[in-house]
């Protein structure tokens, strides 16, 4: 049996978490490919509807980073 690898959508605030992810990328720091980053103008913009839509499309977890 293969090990369970959760699909994660990370909603990242453009002013902090997304900028941090961007910087991590510039520094060639790796992160797992099962995490999909979505830039949001602010995590305050993140609505329950977007979270539900992510789950509806089959992700296993949602991260709000901001």
């Amino acid at each position: 049996m293969t090990e369970f690898t959760p699909e994660i959508v990370a909603f990242c605030c453009r002013h902090c978490a997304y900028a941090a992810a961007d910087l991590a990328g510039s520094l060639r720091i790796q992160y797992p490919p099962n995490v999909k980053v979505v830039e949001v103008p602010c995590t305050g913009r993140l609505d329950i509807v977007e979270v539900l839509h992510a789950f509806e499309r089959g992700v296993d977890g949602v991260m709000a980073a901001g």
């Binding site: 509807v49 539900l52 839509h53 789950f55 509806e56």
Partner: peptide, 9 residues
């Protein structure tokens, strides 16, 4: 939108 998504799932 919330109910639609919830019912689809």
């Amino acid at each position: 939108a919330i109910l639609g998504s919830t019912l689809r799932m």
